[in-house]
Design a binder for these strands. Structure first.
Lengths: 160, 160
DNA sequence: GTCATTGCAAAGGATTTGCAGTTCC
DNA sequence: GGAACTGCAAATCCTTTGCAATGAC
């Protein structure tokens, strides 16, 4: 989506974000692609126009935009591959507070289909449903967020 | 799930995997938890019983178990946080070949509900559906796999 | 005996931190 | 003026690689 400088300015203001050239460039780059880039890819992209920009700024900014509700972090599970020996079809519920992952067995969810258009264009092999929410213990604490993007360091050690 | 040494042996054999103590320990640790641990968490867990085990072995073994179909890699998207400026409710289709992510707008998918039991126990804030498959270009090549676990290095640079 | 598997050591690379200087409001 | 933001440099830590030794079949 093409955005004017004023569009961006207005969106930032509406969320109480300071407007800086770097920040606008990062948001613009993300808004104009549908490729779901990583933070690093955005860093590289924006650096073409702002060679001085630092990784720090990109990571910090993405965290700020996310917390402001201007962008989505598509996958919270980027803290490393996660494994599961349960081979029955099932889905997951992730607590956004403590990041615990619960198994959801539900036959109905396993019968979902992608829209017809995609079924023609793609060979669909499966799907997965991920519910998000808060467990009882985390209900009051709200989302676990830092100013930065990732949660790797603060994720609880999985008990295996 | 509790597994006897023989169970494990049988499962490995059935898939043509060599049986080694380390390998069995890794699989056992994963089968006995529902916590969806990371590779690193499993490394730490198994190391308690096999202090000599190397990270290499754990990563290598997880890749082998996954390729053999004995375990699932729950989240392929562990190659870093990915972002999206599209704030309308939507879902995703991931090509398992080239890792491209496509947006799927479908109102029906957005109305899914978690099973009642979970709705009581959790405060559900949303959900996400992720379809997996192969785009036309990748249809013949099959899954992109290495012996190892991650795909970080080989993921295509997102165009932003 | 052969080949997959393992351990060790070291490299790689994305992400994070501290901090000082700068910019926006 | 003050708080938020930025850049720089360095550290961190998970993950990967090369290679030689080992062990399963």
């Amino acid at each position: 989506m093409k955005l004017s400088q004023d569009d961006i300015r207005a969106r930032f203001k509406a969320r109480g974000l300071k407007v800086t050239p770097q920040r606008a460039a990062i948001y613009r780059a993300l808004a104009e692609t549908t490729s779901h880039p990583t933070a690093d890819a955005l860093y590289r992209a924006v650096r073409r126009r702002y060679p001085m920009i630092s990784p720090n700024t990109v990571y910090y900014t993405l965290g700020a935009l996310r917390d402001a509700g201007l962008i989505h972090e598509v996958n919270y599970w980027h803290d490393g591959a996660r494994f599961d020996a349960n081979m029955q079809p099932h889905h997951h519920l992730v607590c956004l507070g403590c990041r615990t992952i619960h198994d959801v067995m539900d036959a109905g969810l396993s019968r979902l289909q992608a829209p017809a258009g995609f079924r023609r264009e793609f060979q669909i092999t499966g799907h997965r449903v991920e519910f998000h929410g808060y467990c009882e213990a985390c209900r009051e604490t709200g989302p676990r967020r830092t100013a930065r993007v990732t949660t790797r360091r603060s994720a609880p050690a999985a008990r295996a």
